[in-house]
Simulated scan of single mutants.
Amino acid sequence: MSLDRRPLAIFLMGPTASGKTALACQLSERFPVDLVSVDSALVYRGLDIGSAKPDAATLARYPHALIDIRDPASPYSAADFRADATLAMQAITARGRVPLLVGGTGLYFRALQRGLSALPEADPAVRERLTAEAQVQGWPALHRRLAALDPTAAARIGPNDAQRLQRALEVIELTGRRLSEQQQGGSGEFFPWRVLKLALLPDDRSRLHARIAERFDAIVAAGLLREVRTLRARGDLHADLPAIRAVGYRQAWEHLDGRTDFATFRDHGIFATRQLAKRQITWLRSELDARALDPDRDDLRSRAEDALQLFLAGSI
């Protein structure tokens, strides 16, 4: 049997508020790794507080590639991430170091390692008809249709997320296959790194929920609403952009539109974050080759370090 001589890479994955960034920084102090962010909100400049972006001091000490690389007015896709992350990993490998990719955006990890399915081009006629139906029935009605056709896609798309709902239904109509299945399949391309996957999976979900509530309150106290007011004042951003659809930002935008009071804004923000964590955990459990680590165990760091040491030594 031939040896796998591909260069090494590490995926450190986990739900929101599980302590991924702190652990990645700790690991970078001991091992020859350089960090790459895998987060669909951290790519955007100006989304600092609501995204829990590492502060300037942390990034100065522990640089992360792929943070602050896109203006929020310009959407960033999984294909964009795959191209950017591949270049970052190649540069890290060329320096004789190991890329450590840290984040919670499962679609980005999947696109990077497995490639992207070839989805059909947009069909103007189908889109026009779906838009007309939504004007009569409402987007929540089309969301219920999607839930019947593709429950997995519906679970991660909000009932008023017109752009993504339209695309999911369009793909099903054009191909006869669920969007979630086509995204899962990948392109079958060879991935040029050998990967160790570490998944932070809490055994006690209630402790994660408590951290989510505490962190959301801390984000609000740090100035989330002020940050979103600044974004709104630009005049070129709107609620349908991927950056503004990020958890916390969408709820803050609705609150500043006068659609919710403060208490409802807080409840919606915490609930949306918990739902995000639930989806992230579901995806992580499907990554059968990942080593699960409980972020609430006292020996988390030592267990992660043991795994890295064995991997970098070629023992696993």
Rank of each mutant, 00 (worst) to 15 (best):
V228G: 01
P242T: 09
L225I: 03
H255C: 10
G258D: 11
R266W: 07
T264V: 12
H255W: 14
H209W: 07
V247E: 09
V195R: 14
L241C: 10
H255T: 02
R207I: 10
L241T: 09
A218M: 10
I219K: 05
H238L: 08
R205Q: 14
T230Q: 12
D267V: 08
S206H: 11
H238A: 13
D240E: 15
R259S: 12
V247Q: 07
L256Y: 09
A263N: 11
D203Q: 15
L196N: 08
D261I: 07
I219Q: 11
H238G: 11
F191S: 11
L196D: 08
F190C: 10
A243Y: 03
P192E: 15
A243G: 09
A239M: 10
L198N: 09
W253E: 03
F265L: 12
T264Q: 15
A210D: 12
P242L: 13
V220Y: 04
R211W: 05
V195Y: 11
L225D: 04
R232H: 03
G223L: 05
V228S: 02
R245T: 07
D257F: 06
V220E: 11
R211I: 02
R194G: 12
I244G: 00
D204I: 06
E227M: 01
E227R: 01
L237E: 05
L256R: 07
A213P: 01
E214I: 01
L200H: 09
E214A: 15
L241H: 08
F265V: 03
G248S: 06
D267P: 00
P202W: 10
D217K: 10
R226N: 05
H238F: 13
I219A: 08
G235E: 07
F191T: 10
H238C: 12
R205E: 14
A239W: 05
R245I: 01
Y249Q: 03
W193E: 10
E227C: 01
K197V: 08
R232V: 00
H209E: 15
W193K: 09
D257N: 14
R194P: 05
R234H: 08
